[in-house]
Simulated scan of single mutants.
Amino acid sequence: LYEAEALCESAAQQHALSSWMQQHPQPPAPCMVAGARPATLDEARVMRDKLLQTLAEQCQDQSLPTGPGYIPVITIDGGRPSLSVDVCNVPDSMMRSRYDGNETLSPVGEELRARVETASGHAGVRVEAVDLESDLQRGIRRLRTHSQRLHEHLDAA
Protein backbone atom coordinates (compact mmCIF):
# COMPACT_ATOMS: atom_id res chain seq x y z
CA LEU A 1 0.00 0.00 0.00
CA TYR A 2 2.87 2.37 0.85
CA GLU A 3 4.59 1.67 -2.49
CA ALA A 4 1.33 2.27 -4.38
CA GLU A 5 0.85 5.57 -2.55
CA ALA A 6 4.43 6.64 -3.31
CA LEU A 7 4.01 5.73 -7.00
CA CYS A 8 0.76 7.70 -7.23
CA GLU A 9 2.38 10.74 -5.62
CA SER A 10 5.38 10.55 -7.93
CA ALA A 11 3.14 10.14 -10.99
CA ALA A 12 1.10 13.18 -9.90
CA GLN A 13 4.29 15.24 -9.52
CA GLN A 14 5.50 14.08 -12.93
CA HIS A 15 2.17 15.00 -14.53
CA ALA A 16 2.20 18.43 -12.88
CA LEU A 17 5.77 19.09 -14.02
CA SER A 18 5.04 17.85 -17.56
CA SER A 19 1.96 20.10 -17.76
CA TRP A 20 3.95 23.05 -16.46
CA MET A 21 6.68 22.51 -19.07
CA GLN A 22 4.09 22.43 -21.85
CA GLN A 23 2.34 25.59 -20.60
CA HIS A 24 5.59 27.55 -20.21
CA PRO A 25 7.60 27.15 -23.42
CA GLN A 26 11.26 28.05 -23.06
CA PRO A 27 12.62 30.81 -25.28
CA PRO A 28 15.68 29.78 -27.28
CA ALA A 29 19.02 30.13 -25.55
CA PRO A 30 20.79 33.42 -26.31
CA CYS A 31 23.82 33.27 -28.56
CA MET A 32 26.44 34.10 -26.00
CA VAL A 33 29.63 32.54 -24.76
CA ALA A 34 29.26 31.39 -21.18
CA GLY A 35 31.89 32.47 -18.68
CA ALA A 36 35.06 30.46 -18.32
CA ARG A 37 35.76 27.99 -15.56
CA PRO A 38 36.67 29.85 -12.34
CA ALA A 39 40.41 30.04 -11.68
CA THR A 40 40.22 30.65 -7.93
CA LEU A 41 37.89 29.70 -5.11
CA ASP A 42 36.91 33.34 -4.56
CA GLU A 43 35.99 33.68 -8.24
CA ALA A 44 33.97 30.46 -8.00
CA ARG A 45 32.07 31.83 -4.99
CA VAL A 46 31.21 35.03 -6.89
CA MET A 47 30.00 32.94 -9.86
CA ARG A 48 27.97 30.70 -7.52
CA ASP A 49 26.25 33.71 -5.92
CA LYS A 50 25.53 35.24 -9.34
CA LEU A 51 24.15 31.92 -10.60
CA LEU A 52 21.97 31.47 -7.50
CA GLN A 53 20.49 34.95 -7.99
CA THR A 54 19.84 34.29 -11.68
CA LEU A 55 18.18 30.94 -10.96
CA ALA A 56 15.93 32.60 -8.37
CA GLU A 57 14.96 35.26 -10.93
CA GLN A 58 14.31 32.55 -13.54
CA CYS A 59 11.92 30.84 -11.11
CA GLN A 60 10.09 34.13 -10.47
CA ASP A 61 9.87 34.71 -14.21
CA GLN A 62 8.38 31.19 -14.51
CA SER A 63 11.20 30.05 -16.75
CA LEU A 64 12.05 27.30 -14.23
CA PRO A 65 9.57 25.28 -12.16
CA THR A 66 9.52 26.22 -8.48
CA GLY A 67 9.02 22.62 -7.24
CA PRO A 68 12.62 21.45 -7.56
CA GLY A 69 15.38 23.15 -5.61
CA TYR A 70 18.42 24.53 -7.46
CA ILE A 71 21.71 24.56 -5.52
CA PRO A 72 24.95 25.82 -7.11
CA VAL A 73 27.84 23.74 -5.75
CA ILE A 74 31.56 24.51 -5.79
CA THR A 75 33.82 21.47 -6.17
CA ILE A 76 37.59 21.55 -5.79
CA ASP A 77 39.04 19.09 -8.29
CA GLY A 78 42.80 18.84 -8.60
CA GLY A 79 43.24 22.22 -6.92
CA ARG A 80 40.94 23.97 -9.42
CA PRO A 81 37.37 24.92 -8.51
CA SER A 82 34.48 23.98 -10.76
CA LEU A 83 30.83 24.94 -10.56
CA SER A 84 27.83 22.62 -10.92
CA VAL A 85 24.13 22.79 -10.07
CA ASP A 86 22.34 20.18 -7.97
CA VAL A 87 18.60 19.97 -8.67
CA CYS A 88 16.75 18.20 -5.85
CA ASN A 89 13.10 17.39 -5.09
CA VAL A 90 12.70 15.91 -8.57
CA PRO A 91 9.81 13.43 -8.98
CA ASP A 92 11.03 9.83 -9.04
CA SER A 93 9.17 9.14 -12.27
CA MET A 94 11.43 11.61 -14.10
CA MET A 95 14.13 8.98 -13.67
CA ARG A 96 13.61 5.66 -15.42
CA SER A 97 15.31 3.09 -13.23
CA ARG A 98 17.19 0.23 -14.84
CA TYR A 99 18.06 -3.09 -13.30
CA ASP A 100 21.81 -2.36 -13.36
CA GLY A 101 21.26 0.38 -10.77
CA ASN A 102 21.71 3.31 -13.15
CA GLU A 103 19.05 5.86 -13.97
CA THR A 104 18.32 7.66 -17.20
CA LEU A 105 16.36 10.90 -17.41
CA SER A 106 12.92 11.05 -18.95
CA PRO A 107 12.34 13.64 -21.71
CA VAL A 108 10.90 16.04 -19.10
CA GLY A 109 14.01 15.53 -16.97
CA GLU A 110 16.23 16.26 -19.98
CA GLU A 111 14.25 19.45 -20.66
CA LEU A 112 14.56 20.54 -17.02
CA ARG A 113 18.33 19.99 -17.17
CA ALA A 114 18.50 22.00 -20.41
CA ARG A 115 16.54 24.85 -18.82
CA VAL A 116 18.98 25.01 -15.90
CA GLU A 117 21.90 25.06 -18.35
CA THR A 118 20.17 27.86 -20.28
CA ALA A 119 19.64 29.82 -17.04
CA SER A 120 23.35 29.41 -16.31
CA GLY A 121 24.15 30.72 -19.79
CA HIS A 122 21.92 33.75 -19.13
CA ALA A 123 24.04 34.41 -16.03
CA GLY A 124 27.23 34.17 -18.09
CA VAL A 125 28.38 31.21 -15.99
CA ARG A 126 29.64 27.92 -17.35
CA VAL A 127 28.66 24.98 -15.18
CA GLU A 128 30.48 21.67 -15.35
CA ALA A 129 27.36 19.59 -14.67
CA VAL A 130 23.67 19.77 -13.82
CA ASP A 131 22.80 16.85 -11.55
CA LEU A 132 19.17 15.92 -10.93
CA GLU A 133 18.42 14.04 -7.71
CA SER A 134 15.11 12.22 -7.45
CA ASP A 135 13.10 11.96 -4.24
CA LEU A 136 14.15 8.30 -3.97
CA GLN A 137 17.85 9.12 -4.41
CA ARG A 138 17.59 11.87 -1.79
CA GLY A 139 15.92 9.47 0.66
CA ILE A 140 18.61 6.83 0.12
CA ARG A 141 21.36 9.44 0.57
CA ARG A 142 19.78 10.63 3.83
CA LEU A 143 19.48 7.06 5.10
CA ARG A 144 23.15 6.38 4.30
CA THR A 145 24.22 9.58 6.07
CA HIS A 146 22.08 8.72 9.11
CA SER A 147 23.42 5.16 9.16
CA GLN A 148 27.01 6.39 8.90
CA ARG A 149 26.53 8.81 11.81
CA LEU A 150 24.89 6.08 13.88
CA HIS A 151 27.86 3.77 13.29
CA GLU A 152 30.27 6.59 14.20
CA HIS A 153 28.43 7.14 17.50
CA LEU A 154 28.43 3.40 18.24
CA ASP A 155 32.16 3.12 17.47
CA ALA A 156 32.91 6.10 19.73
CA ALA A 157 30.92 4.60 22.62
Rank of each mutant, 00 (worst) to 15 (best):
P30Y: 00
M32F: 00
P30S: 04
D61E: 15
L41D: 09
L41H: 07
L41E: 10
Q58R: 11
Q60E: 13
M32I: 14
V46C: 08
D61T: 09
A36G: 13
A29I: 02
K50T: 08
L41F: 09
D61A: 15
A36N: 11
Q53R: 11
L41T: 09
C31E: 15
V33K: 12
A56K: 13
A36M: 08
C59I: 13
T40C: 06
V33R: 14
A44V: 05
L51C: 09
L55S: 02
R45P: 01
D61K: 14
D42K: 05
D49P: 02
T54K: 09
D49C: 04
P30K: 02
V46S: 12
Q60I: 04
R37H: 11
L51W: 08
V33C: 13
Q60W: 04
P30G: 06
Q53F: 04
Q60F: 00
R48D: 06
R45A: 12
L51V: 03
Q62M: 10
C59F: 00
A34G: 14
R48F: 01
A56G: 14
Q58C: 10
R37M: 13
R45C: 07
V46F: 01
P30V: 02
M47F: 06
R37T: 12
T40L: 01
V33I: 11
T40A: 06
G35K: 01
V33M: 12
E43H: 06
A36D: 14
A56L: 13
